[in-house]
Design a protein around this nucleic acid. Structure first.
Lengths: 335, 335
DNA sequence: CTGAAAGCGCTTACAG
DNA sequence: CTGAAAGCGCTTACAG
């Protein structure tokens, strides 16, 4: 592995000078200066020279690395797939700003058994981006160690440094669409709310509930243990006046599949909307009327937030709520 | 930010001693030795001390970081979602071995416009894990800069350091299942093969073709521009003796959706299998008969390969082919 | 512009 | 065990 010292020796220059040349810190145009630079470039290239990032980080006092923290649990696998789009968005923006991203996953079992991620044991990253909710002890650790943290789609919500989807508005949006289409009663199908639920579970329902309330339309709530298993009874109860609100598009797809078995079609025999749109859903179930949400874009926005924070231009960055977009589809119901 | 020097000052010990204590490099039991250690621990804790990773990496001559290289293209989004499971598997294993993973994405546009990822410009990672195919110029760059590289699900296939799914066997597996179920003609539905196609496109088809050939059963091939759009004509042609082989479960789901509109049911009115099973598919279309594949597990295996390589126990690690598993489902067809 | 020197924060032979 | 010293590979004031 060639070092700057090897280049200096070959070029018969000091390592300081080589460093300056390689970092473009000279602007002179004297012929010997130019020639030195060209010699150095040539040697560096021939030797496959690449500066040692650790040495650089040490002297610059920053690593230009950002950590992306995920929760490491089996139960969150779908959320994880969605998280990937966020991550790719962050990666895109951060990579182009010269940052490297490192994926960190933190377990769920609190206490001594839990392996403490290396990131809490070493000074390594310049800052942290946290995706989704975290257990309280992890949140506490983050707040002690990382001044520079951005919370994305997380249960943590401060006036600053947070970004998340406006889930209440999403619930309102889809419920209103069903009402506008003529539905006279609503039916919510979502996962059971538990303490560790993602905030979207409660907020989407809350938004739908509000809208139903204002319109004085009744809303029934289904929160089965496994929301992807749709009961026959539920399907039998569907009428053209029913507007089903699925928490996400997987539930919507499962419901449409099950309804199909009983000869019922979403859009013809009942109304169906989803609060969310997973990547695959847009391909396999494009007719689904739904609220969509640009996760990649939010990743970019979160990275932007992070970069501004790093630049020190502003110590704090006001939190952002991101709106959903409406995708009409054909499963809305009667007009 | 506290450094080891701060601790040394407070503890009235030399920084070398503090370093040794913090790294558990002493085993004496003299009372003053023990007391020193405890003082140092206490001070480190109080000061929120974490060793500087860059300094450590510099002196140890290794960063304990692994790069995971992905291809950055719009066209690969579905592949990317699958890649995430691989990544999580790698991350799991590597994190527990004290490695940090950094996500690298490399663009598709060759030539000067393409931003050279920082990873090719700095000495930073101990090794690289490459996921999926890469353009030739990138492959060349990797081979010059990284001796320690593992190729995962990639078009690159050497006798060593590679791991991928056995796609020919997968094609054989699903085709045989249809034949065993009594299908008398097969129908392949997949993406059009182009130069940059993933190797699985050609290999799955190849496997199916071989099996059909051996059984002397005809096989028709559909490779529409957009394989997720299933034509009415195709659906009309389906009979109980037809065995449809979908390249992946998204295509299978799209086909099942479209067939449903014409009152045709997979498993009753025709046979349907998928060569692959995306995460979402298992939830929304559990009845689908398909070949499955543990991506997380492959990620772990790839990480394992990497770790052995790093440990230097073996310079090269023989390449591995991973088999698919058969998930029976109910869409197979007549018996 | 160029070079010698100090220093980033650690680890690790080497004496004591 | 402990401490002083060298060194990991760079960057950057400071003189010249």
């Amino acid at each position: 592995m060639a070092t700057i010292r090897d280049i200096a020796a070959e070029a018969r220059l000091s390592i300081g000078t080589v460093s300056k040349i390689l970092n473009g810190k000279r602007k002179g145009s004297r012929s010997d200066v130019i020639r030195n630079a060209q010699r150095v470039y040539a040697i560096a290239q021939r030797l496959n020279f690449r500066p040692n990032a650790a040495a650089r980080a040490l002297v610059r006092r920053r690593s230009s690395m950002v950590g992306i923290l995920l929760r490491n649990t089996q139960a969150h696998r779908f959320h994880f797939l969605a998280a990937f789009e966020l991550i790719l968005g962050m990666n895109e923006r951060l990579q182009s700003a010269g940052y490297l991203t490192t994926l960190l996953r933190v377990g769920d079992i609190a206490g001594k058994d839990r392996e403490v991620p290396r990131i809490f044991q070493e000074k390594l990253i310049d800052g942290l981006i946290i995706i989704s909710g975290m257990p309280p002890d992890i949140v506490a650790k983050i707040e002690t160690f990382f001044e520079q943290a951005i919370w994305v789609e997380s249960s943590v919500w401060h006036p600053n440094n947070c970004i998340r989807r406006d889930e209440v508005a999403t619930g309102e949006l889809v419920a209103q669409a069903l009402l506008d289409a003529g539905c006279r009663h609503l039916l919510w199908v979502g996962p059971p709310p538990v303490a560790s639920s993602h905030f979207s579970v409660a907020q989407r329902l809350e938004g739908a509930r509000r809208t139903a309330h204002v319109a004085q339309v009744p809303m029934e709530i289904h929160e089965p243990e496994d929301p992807y298993i749709i009961s026959e009874e539920l399907v039998r109860g569907l009428t053209p006046r029913t507007g089903v609100i699925a928490y996400n598009s997987l539930i919507a797809q499962a419901l449409a599949n099950q309804a199909g078995r009983f000869g019922k079609n979403a859009g013809r025999d009942f109304g169906l909307v989803s609060c969310d749109s997973e990547a695959d859903g847009a391909v396999t179930f494009p007719q689904l009327s739904r609220a969509e949400f640009d996760r990649f874009g939010m990743g970019v926005a979160a990275a932007e937030m992070f970069l501004r924070m790093q630049s020190g231009l502003i110590k704090k960055r006001a939190s952002q709520l991101v709106s959903s977009q409406w995708i009409a589809g054909t499963t809305l119901g009667l007009y």
